[in-house]
Design a protein around this nucleic acid. Structure first.
Lengths: 285, 285
DNA sequence: CGGCTTTTGTAAGAATATTACGAATAATGC
DNA sequence: GCATTATTCGTAATATTCTTACAAAAGCCG
């Protein structure tokens, strides 16, 4: 499965290097991609104003074995949700375009992350969490919200979980750590100074560090176990959006892992927690 | 574009109602879906141990106009990333299966939401946020983390933003609201009593209510503008996972909307905020 | 067991895609 | 500016793939 990012983008990019009839075909396809997947070679040829073999040659030029194969690839790359060649939101966008773009970005980020999950690290992290006496989730900025989310998930496992957004609190807790304590750091960049300083403090104790951050970053280097999330995101220009989504799903994965670890006997406990919320809600009509 | 969720799932579901040769074809396809998209009708027929017309009839039974059309649909639904028929994590799952399942669930949730975005409500919400004098993001439980995330996003727009997880604080702030205040409620169910009571309090003031919640829920009914997120999720049995992802992306959409609204002249302001963080990080090597 | 319906395969036919080849066009050299 | 060559393109034949019509087989009920 050669994961050519997006056939349409490839065509778009090579547009200038195509000869006359090939470029006619290219335009016909770019104008109505989804329709092209349904057309026969004859229909597409006439729509583009060229002959059938020209269409066939076009397909082969782009790596397909023939027209049917090309249609298949086209359909696949359309379905991947990454329809739009340009991913970034621009000021010319309107309500009909930018929401879809953002959703597509989020979807591709998750799909990319899915392809390359650090399963070993995840398994190890599940181990550590399942055995920990206490777990601290620390993040700053956007990652603080992720940490908060993690807290809401993990407290259900009978493990005392703590979150603090205040760096000073984080430091003090780090300093008073001991055996069985687990510090779970969340950071997109892995370069936030105060967070790394806190990690340094933890390293002087018997506690262990798991982090969800960028590969090879200073924070990653200080961790006993690091779950790498490599989401390429233009953080310089835009706000981090997709990376935190990936982080959240990874935390879901960890939570599920701990649940599985606890075994089926644990479900009643989870059910009890659920039930405790029942009276806080209006019943469904 | 009839968004049939997933062809494989449909086949799986109808498996028991198929006759002998149809079920042979079904199994052949379910065993090797991606290969089936590349096979000719003759190859698939022999792989399944049936005749070509049987395969053809099978295709028509599932809504395709013929075999090529079927292959197209199959390719499309495979590309959507939702390869696995069973969505729920089971106790028999191991590290190789459940992370992928969870990612797939997240991806489909976003894709489904994308298909049916309430653009009008989003546009209205952007209007309201852009004009508001103050914005309060209120949520409880998991949604509190989402609210926190929203706070981190929206403060950049020079609009005073507030989040509080404490229901009592939420009530008091609601009571002291006035013209130009905007209360943004986030709730998966839309049925949380304390949150709805707070909404009631807001309604007695001049402030307005925007909510991100389930369609038709009590909370939705009390809102001036409601962004419906219909994520079908078994909240009774599992923790809400996918719904909050959709909520987060919707908030990204709103943030992007406000940015576009502010116009290009606003980018320097955003850049300044970015820059302010520079010294908190270790430089990239 | 015999008539009925349903299911399935055979074989012919239609549609579709591919290849080979030659004509047209453009490019290069003199 | 003309001849030569290379590239591009379309026609037509061929091969492949799909669909349909029909009949045989299998299952069902009296």
């Amino acid at each position: 499965m050669t994961s050519e990012p997006n056939l349409l983008a490839v065509i778009q990019r090579q547009l200038s290097e195509l000869n006359k009839s090939e470029s006619k075909v290219a335009h016909a396809i770019l104008n109505a991609p989804e329709e092209a997947t349904r057309l026969s070679i004859a229909s597409l040829a006439s729509a583009a104003g060229v002959s059938e073999p020209s269409v066939n040659r076009f397909c082969k030029r782009f790596g397909a074995t023939g027209f049917p194969d090309f249609k298949l690839q086209l359909a696949t790359s359309l379905a991947s949700g990454v329809r739009y060649v340009s991913r970034a939101v621009e000021f010319s966008d309107d309500i009909n375009t930018f929401p879809v773009k953002l959703f597509n970005n989020a979807i591709t980020a998750l799909m990319t992350a899915k392809e390359d999950l650090p399963l070993k690290a995840i398994a190890r992290a599940v181990d550590q969490i399942a055995q920990a006496r206490r777990v601290y989730f620390f993040g700053l900025g956007t990652s603080a919200a992720v940490a908060r989310d993690a807290e809401h998930k993990f407290f259900r496992f009978n493990v005392p979980v703590f979150t603090h957004e205040d760096p000073l609190m984080q430091r003090m807790l780090a300093a008073s750590a001991g055996v069985g304590d687990l510090f779970f750091f969340i950071s997109h960049t892995g370069r936030t100074k105060v967070l790394i300083e806190t990690a340094d403090i933890v390293r002087q104790t018997e506690a262990s560090i798991v982090s969800l951050t960028a590969e090879g970053s200073p924070l990653a280097q200080k961790s006993h176990c690091c779950i790498n999330v490599t989401v390429e995101e233009d953080t310089e220009q835009y706000l981090p959006m997709t990376s935190r989504l990936v982080q959240l799903v990874i935390l879901d994965v960890l939570a599920a892992g701990v649940t599985l670890r606890r075994g089926e006997g644990f479900t009643p406990h989870l059910a009890r927690i659920k039930d405790s919320l029942k009276d806080t809600r209006f019943p469904t009509s």
